[in-house]
Amino acid sequence: MTKYVMNVGLEQTNNAMSKAKTDVTYFASHNLDYQPINFPTLKSRRKRILDSKKIIREKLKDFHSNDIFLIQTPTYLGRFFTSMLLKTLQQKQVKTIAFVHDIDDLRFKRREPWKNNQYEVKFYNNFDVVIVSNSNMAKFFRKNGYKGKIAILGIFDYLVEEIEWQFPIKKKVNVINFAGNLKKSEFLWQLNPKYYSLDLFGNISEEQLKKLKLNVKYEGSFNPNEIVNKVRSGYGLVWDGNSRFPTNDDRLLNYERVNDPHKVSLYLTSGIPVLIWEKAALAPFILKNNVGKTISSLDDIYTVISHITDAQFLQMQQNAEILSKKLRTGFYTENAIKNAEKLLEGE
């Protein structure tokens, strides 16, 4: 039996999309002896239809019955390509594991009426096992028609290449770090921080730069390997959506009810505590491991951090450093894949 992991050649950018999948490929291959199979990106629908059969035949030529193929989804190769890939794997009697990074039909508002949550989730019935981020996502899968076996990740790991490692300053300071796509994070410009400073990391527009308020500082855009040493103090903020308050129609914030935001892993790998929405799927993980606090809205930030003592902050920081080692070495990825393999064997 040979184990393979699908690696799609996504463009390396200063964001989490390619980072998370690259890390899974690395930990699966280095920790668990999976062989990476590189697939090219197929940007046009025409190319996907014309080239799919040829590419799949070439990539799967050495696959045999009872081999294992770990496929990270969404593949962004198109539904036509992915369907043909799975059909070929089934014909070869290869066992398949889906490692789910995102549920795009839930994450983005689709225009086509046939693209709904049940359609995307039921598609995963073509896999033998799925690895989902957390128990909330597992419940979502069950509710929307998935009938197969489920393994749970817990939190995304975060590989850091060999650099001079620096944990943050061991002192409580009222600094809030936010890393992400600043262009879509309009809620940041609704804040008026008086009693804390807000440090921003990521892509920003010229117009947004001109709107920076007192106590708000733009720190720059860095690749995922560099930024862990740029976040040096305070807390990491996890929030998404259109407003500093949660609303029922805020699709992006409500997505955090089932999703594991990759920025949580960034902050914890950097060794800083996290501030996260109280209804986020990862909120129980943060509280259980004592590596942060929950907030009901962004207006809660100062109230929450002002009630944290120096000793409490240092304890959360110490706990974050312990988690950091696990995240940097692929602890959660390795465990989830091992559990998925046991499910394949019927355990």
Rank of each mutant, 00 (worst) to 15 (best):
M1S: 14
K3C: 07
V8P: 05
T13C: 12
T22H: 10
D23S: 13
H30S: 13
Q35V: 12
Q35P: 02
P36H: 05
I37N: 12
I37T: 15
N38P: 02
R46F: 08
R48G: 01
I49W: 03
S52E: 02
E58V: 00
I68E: 04
I71T: 07
I71C: 13
T75M: 13
Y76P: 03
Y76K: 09
G78E: 01
R79Y: 11
M84D: 04
L85W: 02
Q90I: 10
Q91L: 14
A98G: 09
A98M: 11
F99G: 14
D105N: 15
F108V: 10
R110T: 15
N117L: 15
N125V: 06
V130F: 06
I131M: 10
N136M: 10
A138Q: 10
K139F: 03
R142S: 11
R142K: 15
K143P: 14
G145A: 05
Y146R: 11
K147I: 10
G148M: 13
K149W: 07
G154Q: 10
F156G: 00
E162I: 07
P168S: 04
I169G: 04
K172E: 10
N174G: 00
I176V: 13
N181Y: 00
E186G: 04
Q190N: 14
Q190W: 12
K194S: 12
K194G: 02
L198I: 00
I204W: 00
S205Y: 02
E206Y: 03
E206Q: 05
L212P: 02
K213W: 06
V216K: 09
E219V: 00
N225W: 07
I227F: 07
N229E: 09
K230S: 05
S233W: 06
Y235C: 08
Y235H: 11
G236S: 01
V238A: 13
N242A: 14
N242W: 07
S243I: 14
R244K: 15
R244N: 13
R244F: 00
P246R: 14
D250P: 13
N254M: 13
R257M: 11
D260P: 02
V264K: 03
G271M: 04
V274Q: 12
A280F: 10
A281L: 08
P284C: 05
F285C: 01
F285E: 03
K288R: 09
N289K: 10
N290R: 07
V291W: 03
G292D: 08
I295W: 07
D299M: 08
I301K: 07
T303G: 07
T303F: 15
V304F: 01
I305E: 08
I308A: 04
I308L: 11
T309Y: 11
D310T: 14
D310L: 13
L314T: 10
Q315C: 01
A320M: 10
L323P: 13
L327W: 08
F331L: 04
T333R: 06
E334K: 15
N335M: 08
I337Y: 08
I337G: 05
A340P: 02
E345K: 12
G346A: 02
E347H: 08
